[in-house]
Amino acid sequence: MPVDNIQEEFGGEPVAAFSMSHPAVPALYIVLTLGLTMFSMQPVLIALSLAGGLAYGFATRGAAHTLGALRWQLPVILIIALVNPLFSASGSTELFRIGMRVVYLESMVYGLCMGGLFVASVLWFEAAASMLEYDKVLALLGNAAPVIALMISMCMRLIPQFLRRGRTVLAVQDAIDVPGRAPTDPVRSRLRASSVLMGWGMEDSLERADAMRSRGWGAATRRTTYARYRLGRSDVAALVELALFGAAAVAVAWTATTQYSFYPQLSVPAPWLGYAVYAAWMVLPCVLHAIDEKRFG
């Protein structure tokens, strides 16, 4: 590929972590990370996950974008922290009273953790979208469900076409400018547009069906799927390593979460080596990204 094409395609776009691996590798990482984040109701683990998610956001999407998102994420954490005590009046350290309701420190911290967990999950979902682009999901899905993978691909093809045509139909309606003609009622004009689109789409689908059949649709009992990714030896090795690392992180999360309690009194987390394992897991994509960046200068 000529150099200018590489720049055209990747110019400005940061390389996502695991971009050189088979999609199964980022998929495993994402599934484990989302699971760990959503089921670990423990302040330290939540803080680590949040930090990891934020760091990856900074690395791949830039500071402006990530900080911009914090503008709604921080208020969400605060709101949950303030609202939770109103619904669950448990705990032992009374902070103040609103009318007849007692607000306890424990339930406010619980709310804070809930908010942090929610935002951390959002951040990791965003990371997932950058690590597992649509065609990678399709490649993973294609092995198991080739027809569903094709249906998704067809929908993705037809939706933009449908929207574009809808705009054309409305524009043609709007372009009709005759004095004395009553201005078109927006609801009616949309209804008309949808019926135009319906006829148009149905008519086209006949031809598309012919085009599919003429290229052998239904010839084989089982379709195969073209995949741009090969599961190589290094991918298998990465999967095994990730699985082991992930098992350790799960063990840490399990231990830390079961030992921690919010009520009746907050337990105080003690320094523990397990947290380092968990932190390492959460910061892994960021490290991989840094290595990539360094490699490409």
Partner: peptide, 18 residues
Amino acid sequence: IVCETVWHEMAFGLENLG
């Protein structure tokens, strides 16, 4: 054209034939 991306469209007939 049936599929969303160019490479998938190229492969469509081949996928059909298994």
